[in-house]
């Protein structure tokens, strides 16, 4: 649409925009996070929702305790193998379209506790992650930056086409829940989601 025509119409009080943009604008400016804090990063998440670093400015004020009412899951803190089935179950219970932010080094790759028998080395072994925030713990401003990045990502989504398929996913947004094995989780990771690149080293 011609920009001149758009601004002319705008001056007359008629706003023209695509349905896609309107839909995405509504969704991105009112993301409802799931009240899901695991460890130390949860305290920085709470601090981000408090008076100084107000997350309510960006629309994510209403932290819902129930996954059925939330559309953003901020995995804040270390995911242990004992907790991992519960995290995946909660993700499955969220309605589409849903997003995951992995906050902190522990949620990205296990963090400082990587050499652990109970630590899951990154939540992206079982869930698709949209934004990763490095830090231990990341400052509240970093969480706000991640939220803005996610909002930009949502703004670029299309109603039809590839992006629509991403929202539902081939599995309809449901991912298999791991179970407790004798020594480790069964399966140790979700092969469809997590494929680290191979680096061939000449030794």
């Amino acid at each position: 649409m011609d920009e001149g025509l758009k601004s002319e119409l705008g001056r007359q009080g008629i706003f023209v925009l695509r349905l896609e943009d309107l839909y995405n604008w509504g969704r991105k400016n009112s993301l409802w996070p799931l009240n899901f804090g695991l460890a130390c990063c949860a305290i920085e998440m709470i601090a981000a929702s408090m008076a100084r670093y107000d997350i309510a400015r960006f629309g994510a004020e209403v932290f819902r305790p129930s996954p059925r009412q939330a559309d953003l899951m901020i995995v804040a803190g270390t995911v242990t193998k004992k907790m991992a089935p519960q995290v995946v179950r909660l993700y499955n219970q969220m309605p589409s379209p849903k997003y995951v932010i992995a906050m902190g080094a522990c949620a990205i790759s296990g963090g400082p506790f990587k050499n652990g028998y109970n630590v899951l080395k990154g939540i992206d072994r079982y869930l698709p992650v949209d934004v990763h925030i490095p830090g231990c713990p990341p400052r509240p401003e970093a969480l706000l930056h991640a939220l803005i990045t996610l909002q930009e990502k949502i703004a670029g989504e299309r109603l039809l086409g590839d992006s629509a398929a991403r929202r539902e996913g081939p599995s309809g947004g449901q991912y298999p829940v791991p179970s407790y094995g004798a020594h480790d989780l069964v399966p140790p990771c979700n092969r469809e989601l997590w494929n680290p690149p191979a680096i061939q080293r000449d030794e």
Binding site: A39, T80, K82, M83, F113, N115, Y117, N118, V119
Partner: peptide
């Protein structure tokens, strides 16, 4: 509980005394 068991004690046996301070 045990949902946040990050085996801090086992990690400390493999590190020096000062390295355990951030943990």
């Amino acid at each position: 509980f045990g949902y946040l068991h990050r085996n801090h004690e086992k990690l400390a046996e493999g590190m020096t005394y000062l390295s355990s301070m951030p943990f």
